[in-house]
Design a protein around this nucleic acid. Structure first.
Lengths: 138, 138
DNA sequence: GTAGATCATAGGCGCACGCATATGATTGCG
DNA sequence: CGCAATCATATGCGTGCGCCTATGATCTAC
């Protein structure tokens, strides 16, 4: 494979840049990064135990509780006891939560597009396709 | 631009994976992540003030000192007072430092190639090219 | 020569995180 | 029935980081 800078040395600053672009968007919608991560996960796969959710988004199960509390207080998610197993709280995103999530997502993609605009359409598509492959093959 | 997961949602786990792959390599060579970052920067552009170096690698200038101390103690870099401006310490990588850096780099690239192997050659080249563009246009 | 800027260095503050552990409710297995 | 496992929750610890300030040496501009 050809000579190149370390992958991480290129990817990490890119992620930093993205996060810097996204933080204001999140703040504007009054959602934390973890909160948005939760909303995204729940909007794509509605029901899960909290432990499974934590694992899915790479968070610590003891640290996710505060995030869930906030989201619940804001009416963005619901926690209902599972009638079949009363230890478990079934998690679901509310209509309001879905609305917020989609709004944030749209704004974030706009920011991302500013970065991706540095690539030609062909390059951009190839980049995104490869990235998805790497992401899904994890 | 087409529907897609958030860039950061794909990139961040990728970076985490990379770091997990790299930490053992770094440990084996007894260099910290910041240390390796410094060696890389110095190997590519030999002389700089410490403040400029810190900025170049995205580190805090007050936090970089310990790293430089370690690298110097290990004989991987040299700090010599600039005769022209005695406030400044000229930084340079030693032969030994260059050797270590290249060795680490080779090992890290081997790890990275395991990830990139999930792409076809064409995809991989396109991905890396796009990534370089994004990185350099920062 | 004096004032203000610049450099390396040191230390403190607060935050978020990973990790580990405890507890109380509940379930399911033997 | 009783015991181990599971789940949500709470809490504490250590770490690393970003940020901010201070200090002493030195340089530059006036």
């Amino acid at each position: 494979m050809s000579d190149r800078p370390d992958l991480a040395a290129m990817l990490y600053p890119l992620v930093r840049t993205l996060i810097a672009l996204e933080l204001p968007v999140l703040a504007e919608h009054e959602v934390s990064m973890w909160g948005y991560s939760v909303l995204t996960a729940l909007d794509e796969t509605p029901v899960r135990t909290q432990a499974a959710l934590a694992e899915a988004i790479g968070a610590d199960k003891s640290r996710i509780i505060g995030t869930l509390d906030e989201l619940q207080d804001a009416g963005l998610i619901e926690r209902t006891p599972d009638p079949a197993d009363r230890r478990v709280r079934l998690l679901s995103i509310t209509t309001q939560g879905r609305r917020i999530r989609r709004s944030v997502r749209r704004a974030i993609h706009l920011q991302e597009d500013r970065l991706l605009a540095k690539l030609t359409r062909i390059e951009r598509e190839a980049f995104l396709r490869a990235l998805r492959t790497l992401h899904e093959a994890r």
